[in-house]
Structure formats: C-alpha cells, structure tokens
Simulated assay, not measured.
Amino acid sequence: MHDHSIAELPSLRRQKILLLLERDGKVMASELSQHFAVSEDTIRRDLAELDNAGLVQRVHGGALPRPKDSGKDYFTRLDETDEVKVRLAQLAAQHIKDGQIVLFDSGSTTLQVARSLPAEIRITAVTASPLTAIALSEYKGVKVILAGGELNPHSMSASGQEALRLLAGIKADLAITGVCAIHPEVGITSLHFDEVPIKQAMLNGATQVIAVTTADKLGAVEPFVVAPCTRLHRLITELHLGSGSVEDYRRLGIVVEQLPD
C-alpha cells in the first residue's frame, strides 16, 4: 500500500522512514520508493539528510540504524581508526617514494596513510587538509604545502577558489585518495557536492592515482560524480568483500591490491 498522502512532505516521510528502520532493522531504497510512491533519487536524498543528521547509517542500497556512539565528533572518530584502515594505509604508504611530489586527499584513511610513512622519507606533500598537514609536518624530510580557503565542515579540508588555484598549479607524481563510494560503471562518487571540485583537482593533478578504501565502499553510489574509475591506477582494499568482485575494477585496467589474510 502506498502512502501517497505524505509523499510530498519530506519531513513526515523521513520520520516514517525512521519508524520503519526501528521496526525492521534495515531499510532499502527500492522498497521505500515503492512504499512512498516517490523516486529512488528522492529516497536517497532523504537517507542522505538523515545520515547528515546522525540518525541513520547509509549503506549501499539503503540504511541501517546508527551505532550507539554516533554522537562523537570528527576528531574523536579519527582517533578511533580501526585496524583495517591502519593496514590499508600501511600498504598505500609503501608506494610513496623519496623525491616525489604527493597529493594527499582529505579523510581519515588518507590521514592514516600520512601517519604510516617511513620515518626518513623525503617528499613534497600537498594537501587541503590541516589535520593531514600537521601529521606530515612530523617528518623532518617532508616539505608540506597546505592549500587554504574556507574550511569544509564535512571533510575538514579547505575548499573554494583559493584551494583550487593552488592545486591547479601543481603537477604531482602521485595522489592518495580515499573514496566515499566507487562503482565500476558509475565511477567515484561523493555524498557532498562541495567536495567534488577539490577531489577532481587532486585526481587531475597527478601522474599516478592510488585509491585506498574499505570493502563497504566498493559497488556503492553517492549522488555526485567525481571521476570515472579509469582515473585510478591502483585500488587498495580488503581481501574479503561483502558483495561484488574486484575483477570489475581489474577489467578497467586498475591494479587491485588486497590485504593479505
């Protein structure tokens, strides 16, 4: 049965989604679309808003209840980086060599890569993330260039024309990026529109691009497209995937490196 009466009232529809989530333990966008007689795009926007408000946890195709500790701030979450992200970061750090100019994207996984570099490494590092810049400044042999501008509260990195202008003037050997979502056909996507130009500038400014991501981001799609998968040269991820196959990415010419058991 369709609830047509509330289809045009987003706030009521979102409240009803929360009730369904509490009842069922998980909601799927396709089923919610039929239930409320609205498009899946509309439902995805609903789930994005609920996620931003800390009320649900988005997953591929739908949403789960938020973990009980979801009220923790950005800095607390960074300090609780899980073991998988640490191991992924250590793999990625092995690809960074002396003498390179390296672009570091924002995000907790990329920050962990910055923390995992060899102690004596000598590189020039460029980032729009103040937290990553601070981590990189701990290395005596690392020259840090920090792109400035308005601080984006979602990514805790600089955005806007000043940051883009600096990034556009740099030709790097390597870019290290995390991804909000990556799908073999749709490409690399982001939940936040204002992050897209900075991420695009990073990907376009490097000869080689390495993406580091946990398995739950593979096959996922967010609303805003950053770049096709073919912009990546190497994908570093987990050995065991919840769904899908890394072969989809290998067929695109991407080198896929997975954590050992």
Rank of each mutant, 00 (worst) to 15 (best):
E185N: 12
D51P: 01
H60K: 14
A93G: 08
E49I: 14
S155K: 03
S243C: 03
P130G: 10
D51E: 14
I145F: 00
G205I: 07
V59E: 13
K68G: 01
V246W: 03
D51W: 08
L21H: 05
G148A: 13
H2M: 12
Q15F: 00
G169D: 08
F104S: 00
K68Q: 09
G99C: 09
H95G: 12
E80P: 07
D261I: 04
V38P: 02
L91G: 02
L91K: 07
N152F: 10
E8A: 14
F224H: 15
L78D: 10
L191D: 03
I123R: 04
S11E: 15
T230D: 06
K16R: 15
L252I: 10
N152Y: 12
L131W: 04
E238I: 05
L241H: 09
L164V: 08
P197Y: 14
L136K: 05
A135M: 09
V246Y: 03
D216Y: 13
V84N: 04
T237H: 09
A37G: 10
M28Q: 14
Q112L: 08
A206M: 03
I134E: 13
I254G: 04
Y74R: 13
K140E: 15
S116F: 08
G25Y: 00
L50I: 09
F75R: 12
E120P: 00
I210R: 01
D248R: 09
G160W: 00
V144S: 02
V86I: 15
E195C: 05
C180H: 13
Q90D: 00
P153D: 05
T177N: 11
L239F: 03
G219V: 12
L88I: 02
Q15S: 04
D173L: 09
T214I: 02
F193A: 15
V142E: 12
V226E: 09
L252M: 11
S70Q: 12
D194C: 06
T110Y: 06
V246G: 06
S116E: 11
K143C: 04
R251H: 14
L191T: 07
A201F: 14
L218F: 11
E22Y: 02
D98Y: 12
G253Y: 07
A53D: 14
R77F: 08
S190M: 04
L191Q: 10
E80H: 07
D105M: 07
E150N: 09
V246H: 08
G219L: 12
L9H: 08
D3S: 10
K72H: 11
D46K: 10
P153R: 13
F36Y: 07
V226L: 10
H4N: 11
S159D: 00
G62F: 01
A227Q: 08
G25I: 11
D3V: 04
L32T: 01
D69G: 03
S155G: 12
A206F: 03
G141F: 06
